[in-house]
Computed example of a mutant assay.
Amino acid sequence: MDAYDSPRLRGVNKSDLSAIAELEATAFGSNSLTRSALDVIFDPSGALWLLAEDDEGVWGHSVNARGEDPTVGWIVGMAIHPQRQRRGWGQLLLRATIQHLQDHDMEVIRHLVKPTNKIARRLYETFGFLDTGERIDHFGPGEDRMVMSLLLSGRSARSGKGHGDAAKAPQVPAS
C-alpha cells in the first residue's frame, strides 16, 4: 500500500472553501459548486461537511446539507480527485459521511447522481442507496439526475448494527 491509501478525514473550515471549489471544478466542470455557492451554503451547513486529505493537500470532500425536513440529509457534492481515485478514498469518505450525517440526527440521506455515472451509482448502491426518483433536466436540458436515497432510521451505528459498513466509519475529529 502506498501513502495514498490512508487519507485523513476532518471537518471543514471556511479557509478550505477554495480547495473544495477547485476540486469541484476538476470533478464536475460546469456543474460544479462554485466558491460563491460554497460561501452561501457553508454557514448553515458547514458543520456537516467533510474533507479527505493527506500531506500533499485536499483530495476529497463531502458537502452536505439538511433538507427542509430536518431528518433528511443531502450529499450536495462529493468528489475524490482523479489522482486519488480507485484507492478506497471514496468508500472511506462515503462511509464517514453516512456516519457523520447519522450523528447529526439524519434518518434519510439523498444524493443526485448522473444516470450514466456507473462508478458512482455502484459505490452508492454498495452502501445501500436505492434509486428513488429522477430529476429531469436538473442542470439544464439533457442533464438529468437520479435521486439515490439511503434510509438510516432503525439503524444503530453506535451499537454496530445496521446495513453495510456504515457502522464502521472512522472517527472524524471536530474542527
Rank of each mutant, 00 (worst) to 15 (best):
residue 71 T to C: 06
residue 79 A to K: 05
residue 16 D to M: 11
residue 31 N to K: 05
residue 94 L to K: 01
residue 46 G to W: 01
residue 109 I to V: 15
residue 15 S to A: 13
residue 157 A to E: 10
residue 8 R to F: 09
residue 109 I to F: 02
residue 95 R to E: 10
residue 140 G to R: 01
residue 37 A to S: 09
residue 102 Q to K: 11
residue 149 S to Y: 05
residue 61 H to A: 14
residue 98 I to C: 03
residue 61 H to S: 11
residue 174 A to T: 13
residue 51 L to H: 04
residue 47 A to G: 12
residue 13 N to R: 14
residue 54 D to R: 12
residue 105 D to W: 15
residue 115 P to M: 04
residue 104 H to G: 00
residue 78 M to I: 15
residue 165 D to Q: 12
residue 15 S to Y: 03
residue 114 K to G: 06
residue 114 K to I: 14
residue 75 I to P: 00
residue 152 L to G: 09
residue 20 I to N: 08
residue 36 S to I: 00
residue 63 V to M: 00
residue 174 A to W: 05
residue 116 T to Q: 15
residue 172 V to I: 12
residue 17 L to P: 04
residue 157 A to Q: 06
residue 2 D to Y: 06
residue 84 R to I: 04
residue 83 Q to D: 15
residue 144 D to H: 13
residue 109 I to D: 05
residue 118 K to H: 10
residue 130 L to T: 13
residue 41 I to G: 05
residue 165 D to V: 10
residue 70 P to G: 07
residue 120 A to P: 01
residue 118 K to E: 12
residue 93 L to Y: 03
residue 62 S to N: 00
residue 46 G to V: 08
residue 65 A to R: 08
residue 160 G to V: 09
residue 169 A to T: 03
residue 45 S to I: 02
residue 175 S to H: 07
residue 19 A to G: 15
residue 112 L to A: 08
residue 2 D to T: 14
residue 155 R to F: 07
residue 144 D to A: 05
residue 19 A to I: 04
residue 118 K to C: 03
